[in-house]
Amino acid sequence: MAKIGKTLKNLLAATARGELLLRMRADKYLAHIIYLFVLIAFTLFVNLKMDETMVRREHSRKVLEDTKIFHAQKTFELARYDRISKVQEMLERSGSKVTLPQKKAEKLK
């Protein structure tokens, strides 16, 4: 108990005098402290950048989704004109004389 008391007293005295880190020989680990500080700062920086990238990714995803929807819409519209009877209707309406072939196409050998 006396030892603990003495240690505490020395601790408080060293803190009051500003000698705590010196007494703990923290100068030996200065490089490690600086390294840790840089590591933490770098991690925070990378996390921020990752967040920014994720935001850009979300934006790109929305653009991609919009593009996909646009593509699906256009494919659907194109498919509607693919029907033989629809093409015939359109030709008739425009007064064309083009109809379905009456005989098979001749194959060139």
Binding site: L48, D51, E52, M54, V55, R57, E58
Partner: peptide, 9 residues
């Protein structure tokens, strides 16, 4: 929410 108040997965 990110720090910039944007939603990310």
């Amino acid at each position: 929410l990110t720090d910039a108040r944007q939603r990310i997965p």
